[in-house]
Structure formats: C-alpha cells, structure tokens
Design a protein around this nucleic acid. Structure first.
Lengths: 345, 345
DNA sequence: ATTACACCCGCAAACGTTTGCGTAAACTCA
DNA sequence: TGAGTTTACGCAAACGTTTGCGGGTGTAAT
C-alpha cells in the first residue's frame, strides 16, 4: 500500500510560478483573479489531478460537506428507497451522506445526533423514532445545525419536513372502497398515534364523513406496532364482530398481507367477501394472491427533496422559525385484485 | 442557529495552567505524562465536554475514521441487513460509514471509489457490480487504501472477502430436494456467471454427483438477471420440456416466487407436482402460498464481519497479498411448505 | 504631471491537533 | 559530589487551505 501522495495547491502554484493564494482563489473563480490566470490554474489543476483536501478545507471553513442521516431502521423497503434518493441527491450536490440507524430507540437517536454534531456534519436528515415525545432535545439540535425531518416527523418540531400526503392518500384509499359500494369499512392502525398513523386515520374519517357513511367505533382496530403478525391478530379480532366488515383499510402493506392471510384461512373471499387496501406498494403487496390494492409512495423523491431543502438551508441559514415548510409529496392509489369491482354489491 | 463553539485543547490547557501539548498527550495516555496530570486533564475535559475536532485530527494524522461503503443497490433486503450490521459494527469501533450506491454500473463504481479516496476514508467496503470484469482498476485501489469485499466478490481481487458458504448452501438446498425423492431437479441461475451464481451452480452439481443423479443440461436454465419476472419466464420455458422437472432450485427468492406463480397458473401443484427452493429468506418467501423453502443468510453478521476485518487491516497494514482471507459465513436451510414431504414419490 | 482608482496578485496569519526535540528538575549510582 | 539517566513537561513546526490586507502596476480623470 503506497502512501497516498495527493497534489496540493502548492504543487500547482510551483508549477505555474505563482502563489498558493492565487491558485486557491483562481480555483473558485474569485473576481480578483484575471481570466488568463484562472484558465492556466484550472488547466494545471486538471492536469495534475488536483483534489482539495477536504479535511484541510473542513478544518478551515467549518464546512465538511457531510450530511448526517438518521433512520429508525434500514430494512424497510420504503426507507431504502428514500435512502437511494438521498444518496443520489447528496452526490449531485457535492455532499456525502453518513447514515446511521437509531433502531427505533429514542436514546440512541439522541446519542447519534450528538455524534453527528461532533463529527461536524453540515446538516442532518432525520426520521424520528417512535415515541419521540420529548421534543425539547431535538429542538436544541436545531439551534446547532440545520435539520430536516422526513417520513416519521412531528409537527411540534419547528423545521422543514418532507412527507407524503398521508391524509389525502388515506382518503383516496377509503374513497376507492366506498366507490366500490362498500359500507362497513374497517381500519387497522397504530394505537399510540404516530404522525403517519394519525394522518391516515384522519383521511379515513374524512372519507366516511364526506360520503355520509356512519362512523362505527367497532371497526377501528389498533395495536402498538403493526407488522404482519399484528395484521393477523387484528383480522382475527374483527372477525369476532357480530357484523363483519366488507372492507378493511390497513395503514401498512405488511399489516394488509397478514390480514389477507387470516381472511383466507377463515374461508373469506377477497375481495368478494372483504376487500383490502394496504399502504406502501411494497413487494409483498404485489406477490400475494390476490395482489393488494395499495398506495404508492415516491420514496426516492422524498429522499431527494429532503436533501434539496437541507442543502438549501445550509447555504442560506434561516433566521426564524417562520421560514420552515412542510412539503407534502403526492402519492397515488394502485388498484389491484384485492378490491376488484366484480364483487356483487 | 448559534455558531457552534466547540471547546479546544487550548481551553483545557488554559484552565489547568498547562500547555496544549501536555493536554493532547495526557488525553491519549502518553507515557511522558504523570498520572496526576492525566487525571486532572481527563477530569477537566469531561467537565468542559471536550470533543476533538476530527477535522483538525484527520488533517493532521491522515486518519479520518471514515469508512466508505459501496453497494450496487440499497433496496434489496439482504443488502439492507448487511448494512445494518455495518452500521452497528462501525459504531462499536468508533468509525463512521459513508454509504454510496453504484447502481450496478461499473463506471459509477470506479467513480465512487475515486471519490472515497479523495474524501480520505480510512478503508473501503465494497460489493462489486455485475460485470466487474476489469479487475485491474480495483487492484489499483488496493494499493491506495485497505479494501474488503463482501457479498458480490471476485476471487481475482487479492484482498479479504466476506461471503456466505454459497456452494455449501446450494448443496444443502439441492440435497434437501434429493432427500425428498426428487429426481429431476432444475436450476434457475444467471447466465453471465457472477461469483454467487457460479458457486451455487457448483453446489448444485456436487449434490447431483454425490447422490448419483444424472446431470441433464435441459434442466439448467439461465438468464442475465433473475428478478421475479425472469423467474416466470424461465418457469414457462421449462414447462415446454418434454419431461418436466419435479423440483427447481432458484438461486434467488424473487426468482422462486416468480416460478411459483407461473407453476400455479399452469395448474401445477407445489410441492406435489414440483417442489421449489429459493435463496435468501426474503420476506417474499414467507408470504407466498405455499411458503418457500429457502436459505437463510446471516446478513448483519456479514456486515459486522466485514467491518471487523477492515478495521483490523487499517490498524495493521498488510505487507503482502498472502495475508488475505476469505471468510465464509454459515447459512442454514429453512424448510417450508414448498418442499413438504407429503408429496407421493 | 499628479491624483485616484480599478485590477491583480502575494504575504502571512489562522484554523486545532500532533509530535520531534529540547530541557529543567528529580533521581540514581558510584 | 558530580556525572549520567529518567521523568515530565513546554516550545514550535507542521498538516493544506482560506482570506484580510497591503502593494505594485496600469489606466483614466483632472
């Protein structure tokens, strides 16, 4: 392993019989430098394959071009599509992402935020862990470094937030079921209302209300987390109801898959007896039988948008809280077999 | 946003009426410093919440504690489990991962390697893109910085490689089919043999040979990539065979799911008429009907192991190529309904 | 011819840390 | 007691870049 011998400003300066400062300025097109000199420097820099030592730079300018990214979990498909967007856009903009996982632990999340600060990142992209109730600490960080929330957000945190149109998406999903003639539409959601779950529930309620369907509390089932297995449990549960639902809106694809399996096990036909809508357009929703109608989320776009806003804030530091925006990206409904029309209602 | 005002060595030195160099040495337990002084310094450092400016450090020492990670794609479940392992282990060891995606493009991969070098990472973790035939460039990088390959590797590159026991895993999978009494076992694999595909094919061959089953070329189907849709196509293809197979080993879960769907569509019963084994233990393999027998890969362990070996190499630079190891992590077979015994053979 | 003012460029300090070297004080041993 | 050695610390340079400032040259206006 050779010792890396990077070329420095001084090397360019020597080759051109000029000074380091002139080279430095020329490379960033400072107005004090003549056009010819700039050309010579740029040419020589390319020739020598010059690349600035980012540590000297970061050291000097207090800019590292590093962006910290914290997510609760890496393995969810939606998260990884977001991260792909982040990777792409950070690269476009000359930044580098440092990704860390909070494992859905609030303490770990704080610890990671700390670490990022010490690392000297220029900004942070954060998707909150469940139960991030103590917002104060997070707010402290906003004082220290530009921060943009995405996916799992909280309106209580005064900063830019990139999300999808959760409420509208849920509304569309439930409206679709209503349009199909379904009357008793259940919802499977989270108990301790995360931002996402809450908004989707609101969309559900609005759809019922707008179409004059009665609200029935016995059709609202919740559990703390809603992975596949919980979908099964909730499905079993709702089948105990004296009057069964004719459709169910699951706020997660995994949950929907679980529900589907349970319904099938109980000899219920999907969608004839009961229709199902999920949320995420995960791989799972496409390979089960029948395929599940779901909401497609523009993951990479969320990632790219988050980077865009963060970098913008890094470049133009905000003065007050009033500058922050909540950006809602459009989703769309993908209709599949789990809600096909040919049901006879 | 306050300007970050980090405490420096000088602040500690001033508070203690001593010099910066003494503080620096005390903090890293240099032998030239008396025990009492060390204690005082450590205490004061904690009190002031001192944290070294890593850019000054990296600048000075040419050590950044950054580890570059390059993967072809973020969205594969197996990849994200590996990355979780990487995140965890880098953190344990005081390093920070910079993750980038090569989008399965060779040129992009080289570009990213370059970027990583300029960024000054201490080491690189790399999962090769398809068609990385020009190994020379990669080898050049080994001269510059410690590099460890994982998952998608190539034996031609002289460096430490962390993989799973691909050949053995495939052998186990196929042996399992043979033990079930299956005689005509097909394999769906990649055409342009990637390391993984090749090894799995070798395992397939060994299983046949060991159990005195005849090799039948018409049972070996390949395509360039093998996502879900290709599974379907290959399945259609093999059904054209005059004598149909009674089992198929897909070197990918996605491919297996596709095959399963096609077989079902053609009124073939799985596993009665045809058994299926996949590879990866992805979510998909667990939610289709019937569930698919597959190979479980220890993703996070691969990630953690890769970091372990890389950090070890960073700390103790290798002299020659003979020091490099290939680490094979154990997988195990998960038997599910797609290969259940009750078939009547 | 003098002044005024761009226009270009170089000097040198500064960022925070590490480290080779120098040395005063303390200790060792004959 | 004096020479040699060890202990414990400080001085200052160095890493590569940025940037305030100062100055020399040339041009234009008076």
């Amino acid at each position: 392993m050779k010792k890396r011998q990077n070329v420095r400003l001084k090397d360019i300066a020597d080759a051109l019989q000029t000074s380091v400062s002139t080279v430095s300025r020329a490379l960033k097109n400072h107005k004090d430098i003549s056009t010819e000199m700039k050309e010579k420097v740029h040419k020589k820099a390319k020739e020598l394959n010059y690349f600035p030592n980012i540590f000297a730079q970061g050291f000097r300018k207090r800019r590292t071009h590093l962006i910290g990214v914290i997510v609760p979990n890496l393995t969810h498909y939606y998260t990884s599509t977001i991260l792909e967007g982040v990777l792409e856009e950070t690269e476009n903009r000359g930044y580098h992402p440092i990704i860390m996982g909070s494992k859905d632990s609030y303490e770990k999340q704080i610890e990671l935020l700390n670490m990022m600060l010490h690392l000297g990142v220029d900004g942070i992209l954060l998707s909150l862990t469940r139960n991030t109730h103590n917002i104060d600490k997070i707010i402290q960080y906003i004082e220290e470094v530009p921060l943009v929330l995405f996916d799992k957000v909280s309106r209580k945190v005064p900063c830019t937030q990139i999300i999808i149109d959760e409420e509208e998406a849920a509304y569309k999903a439930v409206k679709h079921l209503i349009d199909l003639g379904r009357k008793r539409i259940a919802i499977f959601k989270e108990t301790n209302d995360s931002f996402n779950s809450l908004k989707r529930y609101e969309g559900y309620l609005r759809a019922l209300k707008t179409h004059q369907l009665p609200f029935d509390e016995s059709l609202v089932l919740s559990s703390q987390y809603i992975p596949l297995d919980q979908g099964k449990i909730l499905a079993e549960q709702i089948l105990q109801n004296p009057i069964k639902p004719d459709a169910v809106f699951c706020i997660t694809d995994n949950c929907a898959v679980g529900a589907l399996q349970t319904f099938k096990k109980n000899k219920l036909k999907v969608p004839e007896d009961i229709a199902i809508v999920g949320f995420s357009n995960s791989m799972s929703s496409q390979i089960v039988e029948p395929q599940i109608t779901t909401i497609d989320q523009p993951g990479t776009k969320v990632g790219k948008t988050a980077v865009t806003y963060l970098v913008d804030e890094i470049d133009n530091p905000k003065k007050g809280f009033m500058d922050y925006k909540t950006v809602e990206l459009k989703t769309h409904l993908i209709v599949r077999a789990s809600t096909k029309k040919e049901a006879n209602f």
